[in-house]
Design a protein around this nucleic acid. Structure first.
Lengths: 337, 337
DNA sequence: TTGAAAGCGCTAACAT
DNA sequence: ATGTTAGCGCTTTCAA
């Protein structure tokens, strides 16, 4: 920058003004500076600027996801990127794989790089370690799940309502023996979806058979095995509510493997690509990950300019997508099934 | 850091040594410093350190993808992250949507933040604007497609061979009227896959009917429409080779819509989730995006420690996954069909 | 093993 | 409209 200033015959601050598009430079001077910068193929060093910039901003944010390689998270990622890019902000991203230790390490990697804000999919244990950062003025937005022990903006799906809706849908088709297949109980959304399941059952005066409640699944494989086990019992469910993407697919594979995909109903939480082309097409409670990501990013940037109001909780609605698998009716009841 | 030094009663450099785990500090001193750091809840400011650090490293890299919201790119992303994380390096990521302008803007956003390296999915036009950065010592690795006009490490799939293999597979089932449905002709992989298609046809002495070669598709929608048009002609193909993920799905939807999914063969390039559960299950040439991402990241970090050998070209093999749709035989030929 | 001084390249604050 | 000076918080260099 010094060299550019020398070549253009101006002060260094003028160069700074020009390359940053700040006002208060005569067009002719600006032109001269631009030419000199071009000549020397000068590029600003934001790292140096970050050290002194107002508010100590680095124009970067950190995005902590369960895994970048996961369609739900990837859609959020894309939405966040689009909002950030429009503001000239770069995005660091990383994956926790649901490990609290990894979450902390990633957050520290980001905060030590002085990100201007953090969007976090919490692993659900305890986020009080973020208190200092929060007090220091770094905005934080929790997505998909609330953060524990800190009071921050939160953007989540209506997990309880969505799950209740799904189960009510099954009940409406006449099902009473409905199984719940859930994700890790450390994940807040998994717990909430189970709560929605219980609410729907209670609302229909159906006692929950706890042997039909399976938790701590996390991938296709474990869901497949659990569903196979469940479906090979003497008394099996007439419908299954799967609380997550990969679990839905694992359960679907089990239904197909046992040839009962046209006789046992299935509703999944979270939509997935090609669900409509399967046999039967899979009924799901669709989330809107783009809306979640966009809302989170907008909250985050909103906080940066005006941090003086209480944390908000934004609930993004879900939508039941009726496709077929969820409309299969139970076998005609004899007695009190 | 000054405060920590004061509290621990040591020099500032000693604090620096301790928090960075550098050798040459007496255990007792280190302990005292650690305690003081804890007390003041001190966290290093990497941004400040970046200004002076040897080699001007920032311990961050930039990853430019077609879109982070795309299963192929997301898998690459995850693999890159895992390699980087093990080295304490943070990853900036962003999406070009195949726009050269956006690519440049993103690359500049990253280089002005002084990333230690760049992994780039080029939009295929011209990457000579990276020459300066390259000469300045920033390692660059092109993934999925070569970069144009600069000589850098490159990690790609064996597009020509993979496509040829797919088409040979169709020819082996007796097909002669084989359609090619390709991505944007600006994308190098699309061109290479068409080349593989032509090689296979030439190898089997089958003249290519250019009316069956469709290019410039890019998403499900456009592929669906193009396939519908193709399949409603009086003389239609007996088999289709789809050169990309979303195109394969779009074509599949068209086959289903017209009820010809059991009579017209389909092979796709790039595997996708649930391909095995469709009716018929879809035969594909599977790529290995994790291997591509891992190889690219390892090349990148390799360059950082030893940049003195010529750029390498790493070709990650593909694999034909036979599932059903690609094994459908053509109707019995009468005459020279 | 430890510390003092210099300075990375920029931006802020304050002249002019 | 433009320039000057100080200093961001660290790491480097070099001396003790």
């Amino acid at each position: 920058m010094r060299d550019v200033a020398a070549l253009a015959g101006v002060g260094i601050k003028t160069v700074s003004r020009v390359v940053n598009g700040e006002p208060g430079v005569a067009p002719a001077t600006a032109e001269r500076v631009s030419r000199a910068a071009q000549e020397l193929s000068f590029q600003v060093d934001m790292v140096a600027g970050n050290l002194r910039r107002t508010g100590r901003r680095t124009r970067s944010i950190g995005l902590v996801l369960a895994s970048v390689d996961n369609p739900f998270a990837a859609a959020i990622h894309r939405a966040v990127e689009d909002v950030a890019e429009a503001r000239g902000v770069a995005v660091f991203s990383a994956s926790t794989d649901e490990h609290p230790d990894r979450e902390r390490a990633l957050v520290e990697a980001f905060t030590s790089r002085r990100v201007d804000g953090l969007i976090l999919t919490s692993t659900g244990v305890d986020q009080r370690y973020l208190l200092r950062e929060l007090e220091a003025g770094t905005p934080i937005v929790a997505i998909d799940r609330p953060a524990v022990g800190i009071d921050v903006d939160t953007v989540v799906a209506d997990n309880v309502e969505g799950a209740r809706h799904a189960v009510e849908h099954l009940v409406g088709s006449g099902h009473r023996r409905i199984a719940f297949m859930g994700d890790l109980a450390t994940i807040a959304t998994a717990v909430q979806r189970l709560e929605g399941f219980r609410q729907a059952m209670a609302g229909a005066d159906i006692p929950v058979d706890e042997s039909l409640v399976v938790e701590d699944l996390h991938d296709e494989e474990s869901a497949f095995k659990a569903a196979m086990e469940l479906l090979m019992r003497s008394v099996r469910p007439t419908a299954i509510f799967a609380s997550q993407n990969l679990i839905t697919i694992g359960v679907f594979r089990a239904l197909r493997t046992l040839g009962v995909h046209h006789s046992i109903a299935l509703v999944g939480f979270d939509d997935f690509s090609l669900a409509d082309l399967l046999d039967p097409p899979v009924t799901v409670v669709a989330q809107d990950p783009f809306a979640i990501g966009r809302a989170a990013a907008e909250r985050l940037f909103g906080r940066m300019t005006d941090g003086a109001f209480p944390p908000q909780r934004i609930v993004v609605p879900t939508r039941l997508v009726v496709r077929g698998s969820g409309e299969i009716r139970p076998p005609v009841a004899r007695g009190n099934g």
